[in-house]
Simulated scan of single mutants.
Amino acid sequence: MSTTGKVRGSYAKTPARRREILEAGIEVFSTSGFRSGSIREIAERVGMSQAGLLHHFANKSELLAAVLELRDDQSAEVVPIDDEHVGIETIRGFVRLIEYNATVPGLVELHCTLSAEATAVEHPAHQYFINRYAFVVGQMTLAFERMRDAGQLVAGVTTVGAARAMVALSDGLQVQWLLDRTSVDMAEEMRRYLRGILTVEL
């Protein structure tokens, strides 16, 4: 114990300490990239040993999934998901998020790599991605349902189909962009898709 009464060292598991680690993880992967960013660099940023840092997580994959989960929480500030604003503003926010993602390639690479690896049932992030896709598709479906009711969706477009297509397009564009960042404008391609199913301007 320290003189202040706080537990010190690598075994002090607190929500605040875990949050600090995850925020450092976002910074490292945003600036250094998924491959170059390391557990050691994250640990150095928060003043811990690598062993001490990993004491807060079962393994590296769990840490990486938690970084993405925090990234998702922060994305809610860009994409309105509260009940009052779900609708066209949600879709507009989704496009803004795609524009932002183009500024943090390391996080995009982390998402793409981990989501592919997590298709294995035993992967630590498997359930996280199942839950994430269910949530995102659900929110986008609700947004399209409200837009349909407001006459903002082209007749015949199914709401869940539009939501799944939008999410799938986003993921596919990210892979193409990671392979060659000059080959595609992710946000503009998403706008092109949405213009074909909406009756209002984005």
Rank of each mutant, 00 (worst) to 15 (best):
E117N: 05
E122W: 09
G93A: 09
L110K: 06
V95C: 12
A116T: 13
A116L: 12
G106L: 04
F94V: 02
G106W: 12
A118M: 04
V108P: 05
L114S: 10
H123M: 07
H111D: 04
E89G: 01
L114M: 08
L97H: 12
C112F: 04
V108L: 11
I91C: 05
Y100L: 11
G93H: 04
V121T: 11
R96M: 09
H111S: 07
R96W: 07
R96T: 07
A118G: 10
T90R: 06
V95I: 14
Y100R: 06
Y100S: 11
H111C: 01
T119F: 11
A120F: 13
C112K: 02
R92I: 11
L97G: 03
H111M: 05
P105S: 00
A120P: 06
A102P: 08
T119G: 10
I91V: 15
A120V: 13
F94E: 06
H123Y: 02
L110Y: 00
H111R: 12
E117T: 01
E99L: 04
V121H: 11
V121A: 14
Y100C: 01
F94M: 04
H111L: 08
E99M: 09
A120G: 04
I98C: 11
R96D: 10
Y100M: 11
F94I: 01
P105A: 06
S115E: 12
H123Q: 00
E109D: 15
F94C: 05
R92C: 13
I91Y: 06
N101C: 12
V121N: 12
T113D: 06
T113K: 12
T90F: 05
Y100F: 09
R92F: 05
V104Y: 04
E99F: 07
E99C: 07
E89M: 05
E89P: 04
S115I: 10
A116Y: 05
E89T: 08
R96S: 10
L107M: 12
L97S: 06
L97R: 06
T103P: 07
I91P: 08
R96P: 03
F94Y: 13
R92T: 01
E89K: 12
L110C: 04
V108Y: 00
A118K: 01
I91S: 03
E109G: 00
P105H: 06
T103H: 12
T113E: 15
E99Q: 11
I98T: 15
H111A: 07
I98W: 03
E109H: 07
S115G: 01
A118L: 04
N101R: 03
E122K: 07
A102T: 15
T119H: 13
E117C: 07
A102R: 15
A102C: 14
G93Y: 08
Y100V: 03
T113S: 14
